[in-house]
Simulated scan of single mutants.
Amino acid sequence: MRRFSLWVRDNPVVADSVLALLLFALDLSALPDSSHKPVYLLFALLLPLPVIVRRVYPRTAALTLFVLSQLSIGVSGALGDPTLHPSALGLGLALYTLVAYVGRREGLFFLALLIADGVSTTLILGEDPASVIAFSITFYALCWTLAEFTGARHAYDTEVQARLAVADYDRERRAHDAVAAERTRIARELHDVVAHAVSVMIVQADGARYTLRRDPDAAERALGTIAGTGREALRELRRTVALLRTEHAPDDLPQHGTAGIAGVVEMMRGTGLAVDLELSGELDDVPPEVSLGVHRVVQEALTNTLRHAGAHPKAWVTVRRVADRVHIEVVDTGGVPVQTAITGSGLGLVGMRERVAVLGGTMEAGRDPSGKWRVVAEVPVYREAP
Rank of each mutant, 00 (worst) to 15 (best):
D217I: 13
P38Y: 09
A15W: 00
Y57N: 04
R374W: 08
L212W: 08
L19C: 06
V326T: 10
N11I: 06
A197T: 13
R54A: 03
E282N: 12
L349T: 15
L142F: 13
L63T: 11
L71N: 03
E364L: 05
V51K: 03
A141T: 14
L273Y: 14
A227N: 12
S35R: 10
M201T: 15
G366Y: 04
G263E: 10
R320E: 03
D192L: 09
A44T: 11
R245M: 10
D276P: 07
S199G: 12
G310I: 03
A218F: 08
T343S: 03
A274Q: 15
P32E: 12
T138R: 13
A130G: 02
I133Y: 00
R235T: 07
A274M: 13
V18P: 00
R355A: 04
S34Q: 07
A178I: 05
T122S: 05
S280L: 01
S29D: 07
P369K: 10
P313I: 06
K37D: 13
G126I: 12
M1R: 13
L95E: 07
A233Y: 02
Q299C: 00
A259F: 13
D157Q: 11
L84V: 15
A262M: 09
Y156K: 11
L306F: 08
I226Q: 11
A25Y: 04
G126F: 11
A147F: 06
L41I: 09
V297I: 12
R231Y: 12
L302F: 01
Y140F: 12
L114V: 09
L164K: 08
G257N: 11
E106H: 06
V203F: 06
G107E: 11
L234Y: 00
V99I: 15
V241P: 01
H154V: 11
L237W: 09
A208K: 06
A62C: 03
L19W: 05
G371M: 04
L279R: 07
